[in-house]
Design a protein around this nucleic acid. Structure first.
Lengths: 304, 304
DNA sequence: TAAAAATACTCCATAGGTATTTTAT
DNA sequence: ATAAAATACCTATGGAGTATTTTTA
């Protein structure tokens, strides 16, 4: 079942002649003969009844022709698909993202992207930074967006945006809690806090250390396991909380939440696009990355 | 897109390793390398990212693998189908038959055959003898059943059955017409006759010549173009008619028609199974032919 | 007789091998 | 230091050719 033999076979079938098939394929007639012979030997059946000058396919020949045609069709399709992958924006992208960018940043981007490149199938896998880094390294993910800098020589980090963590509170808590505060005030506030291990909590903890305050000193009224839960608790007036600007922006704009500025407290965290340094980048992945970066610029996020 | 290369590619994809693929295929690792290389060159894309020791398929590699698997599957299926064609009774038979056997003989046989070999798809094409012979010679038909002997060196004739043509009349016409007659009586009867060119009429004409009577001398009241029409006319009492025993047997048995024996008139016609002498016979065609012959024997038709 | 398939043989392109180098764990 | 892929080079199978014979329309 070699390709050249199958080609010769198909031509003989279609042209009902060994010599014509030979001409058509720029082969000599004996070459065509041997190809058919070896196919017949391999399959253990006659493929053509050679009756005088006419060449009539047997039933086995008809079956083989059907199969061979299907094979050629899939070969052409496969080649075309691969060619498109190089030259068009199509195929699929599997991206990974940690919670904040996946929930608050990417949905809008993906919607834009879909409009520009409807042929691309995008899959977004939400996971913590460690998982995303692993999967980018193993090749499961084409790229990832994470909130930390993972030190691995094969991981290429490109700064995507500088995220700010803000202390927010419901306006209902005023005047008890003012929109301006000094670090010392923080100990008296009722806190809604993320669980240990959360990237957001980690960044907050680091920033507080600079101010000389440990999280242990804070009065934690509620601890939750997701950004969205934290925001809802704060909206409900349970207490104050620290979370990404991306998560609370719309509530701040609508006046449902206030940002409380704390003197000397500046909580920043960088989000990076990470890629495997040595894996090839396909058009559609590249386009999606471009699209994300453009979105950041167009919407005036800080990124340098 | 050579088969060996595709095999090597598939193994590398599955085992994530050039050397393991080599071992698995009893090839050396460099051979596998060159196969992948030449595929990459042919398609103009990298198929695997070789990152240190790990071999990770690119998106193009994933596409190729999907295509290659489909190709291998169709190859296996095709081989299996052809193998079955040799070893099982399956596939399709295209048989041709002239009117009498097609209408009065084959339906019962095909029904039996279907019960024994439900996997075989049988197609029956009804046509006149000349058409059937041509199509057997051209390969359109696997075999045919015809009522005459066509003289062609590539046509193999096997006597299937000796058909008798009978003079029949409705019992209503008695006593005007008796069940015993002499040739002279025929001229006085009202005749229902097939058109010129009909094989049945031809056979009748030949037999009458032996008795020294020309068809011109007969009083033809009605002329029709099919066996079935002739039989219905005779049933209706229009007159007497000559046709195959196969067509009237059930009416004779039920008493709806009488056979009129004419002294010295013996109208016989042979039906033959015809095949192309040099075309290969596939199992299913052979089985159908056997089945037809068996049916003739089991039902006590004359055939020698 | 002419045209097409089969047969016989010759040749070289390339699939496949071994030996070695390079690269990464 | 080991294991895997790349590279270099060689060998030999078999694909393709030419010449010829056989068959048939």
């Amino acid at each position: 079942m070699d390709i050249r033999r199958m080609q010769a076979f198909a031509r003989v079938y279609e042209l009902q002649s060994f010599s014509k098939a030979g001409k058509d394929l720029y082969l000599s007639q004996p070459t065509v003969s041997t190809h058919i012979l070896s196919l017949e030997e391999e399959l253990g059946v006659k493929l053509f009844d050679r009756i005088g000058r006419s060449v009539i396919p047997t039933q086995a020949g008809q079956m083989l022709h059907a199969g061979v045609q299907k094979i050629f069709r899939t070969m052409e399709e496969t080649k075309a698909n691969i060619h498109d992958l190089k030259n068009k924006v199509c195929g699929q992208v599997v991206a990974g993202g940690s919670t904040i960018p996946s929930n608050y940043l990417l949905p809008a981007v993906l919607s834009d992207f879909r409009k520009s490149y409807p042929q691309v199938m995008v899959e977004l896998r939400i996971g913590d930074s460690i998982k995303v880094c692993q999967d980018v390294l193993s090749g499961e993910l084409d790229f990832g967006i994470v909130g930390g800098y993972a030190d691995h020589f094969d991981l290429e980090h490109v700064l995507l945006l500088k995220d700010e963590l803000h202390l927010v509170a419901s306006p209902d808590l005023r005047p008890k809690i003012d929109v301006k505060a000094c670090p010392g005030d923080l100990k008296d506030m009722p806190w809604v806090m993320r669980e240990k291990g959360s990237g957001t909590r980690q960044a907050f903890e680091n920033a507080m250390m600079v101010c000389g305050i440990s999280l242990q000193e804070l009065r934690v009224s509620t601890q939750v396991q997701s950004t969205e839960a934290l925001v809802r608790c704060v909206l409900a007036g349970t207490g104050v909380g620290v979370t990404s600007r991306l998560a609370v922006q719309k509530y701040v704009e609508s006046g449902e939440l206030d940002i409380i500025e704390v003197e000397g407290l500046n909580i920043q965290r960088n989000f990076y696009i990470i890629r495997h340094r040595r894996r090839s980048l396909f058009t559609c992945s590249g386009k999606l990355i471009e699209c994300i970066q453009k979105h950041i610029q167009d919407n005036g996020y800080q990124f340098a």
